[in-house]
């Protein structure tokens, strides 16, 4: 809904046009004090470049890894990060929130 998100989807199209592999990550649910609202997006290319954010920095690394997986397999994935999730501690979701991120390849 923001100008910034405009850029994410346009960037996804532009990167595909440039011949890059592209995946999109979108925050689909949040609980507690999650730093980015539902609908926030991140676009990733096959070399790990990205624009946008889904967490303000703490889970982006794991999301980019999953995005690479989605580019290879063509299958979407849902990632969950939160205080009850071991992985969240590892990647440092220090904000005390809980988020679900949908990751999909742009064909």
């Amino acid at each position: 809904m923001t100008a910034r998100q405009d850029d994410i989807l346009k960037t996804a199209a532009a990167w595909r046009d440039a011949g890059q592999q592209v995946a999109l990550a979108t925050v689909i649910t949040t609980w507690g004090s999650s730093p980015r609202p539902v609908g926030s997006q991140l676009v990733v290319d096959g070399e790990g470049h990205f624009e946008g954010s889904v967490s303000g920095g703490c889970i982006e690394g794991a999301v980019i890894e999953a995005a690479n997986g989605a580019m290879e397999s063509g299958k979407p994935a849902i990632l969950e990060f939160g205080v009850s999730d071991e992985q969240a501690w590892e990647v440092g979701l220090a904000c005390g929130g809980n988020v679900q991120v949908y990751v999909e390849k742009v064909e």
Binding site: D6, L9, K10, A12, A13, R16, L24, E104, K105, V106, E107
Partner: peptide, 13 residues
């Protein structure tokens, strides 16, 4: 996301 859908979405926006 299919490329055609992304293009249509961008056009709608």
């Amino acid at each position: 996301m299919k490329r055609g859908m992304l293009d249509r979405l961008n056009a709608d926006r």
